[in-house]
Nucleic acid binder design. Sequence first.
DNA 1: GCTAACGCTTCAGTTTGTGAAGCCATGTAG
DNA 2: CTACATGGCTTCACAAACTGAAGCGTTAGC
Lengths: 113, 113
Amino acid sequence: MSAISNSNCPVCRTAEVVCGKWTLLLIRDLAAGSSRFCELERSLEGISPRTLSLRLRALEEEGIVERHTYPEVPPRVEYALTRKGEALVPLIDDMRQYGTRWLLAEDPEPAAV
Amino acid sequence: MSAISNSNCPVCRTAEVVCGKWTLLLIRDLAAGSSRFCELERSLEGISPRTLSLRLRALEEEGIVERHTYPEVPPRVEYALTRKGEALVPLIDDMRQYGTRWLLAEDPEPAAV
DNA sequence: GCTAACGCTTCAGTTTGTGAAGCCATGTAG
DNA sequence: CTACATGGCTTCACAAACTGAAGCGTTAGC
């Protein structure tokens, strides 16, 4: 995604980090304990390996994901959230709440909070 | 964006609604009181009118945005968040917090919450 | 020798988003 | 009378993002 306007606006900055397709789901899976490329690939049903690779690289550059390689055969690479990445988890929790209440519930307008 | 995998997963469902470029910023502006097309267009510096139009239409179909037209000259159209749309505001607040703490702060790892 | 596993990369093709221009109606300025 | 502005879009040609299938390099198992 090319830049989103105002770079002093915290919402815009976060939007830039987060707005690629799959990004939030990828972070969700990393937060849930997935760590290997093929594991993520299977969990994110439908993602192309190219996109996954690009996302991981971009998030690594942002300091949101850490990459550790182990020189084994077959090769093993593990990805994990940094603290900066974990700080995005509340956002995902909100998404889960929203989806549960407004997109999946039978009664779309439940009583109260 | 074409579908994201699992349609029973609340996070995936929310991601589908929210992952288009500009969507979250648009909701932020609607939450902040903007309501007219040209107002949004000016506020979302860099958005193309086509994209704004598509976003508004899609969000209207989702029941997140309401559209009211007034038969005046020049014509007036006002957009507003529904309750389902307002329910997304916490997500934007999280983004603001995240952006402020992790993307704009000078010390990227501030003491505590 | 064939296949599978892992972590990718490459390629052609589709989907999304951009930026500039245009449309329709009217009011106001020159 | 003509020109231009306003609001809310649509249309178009182009660029960026994403997809799906195939392939690569290494080694282990059948």
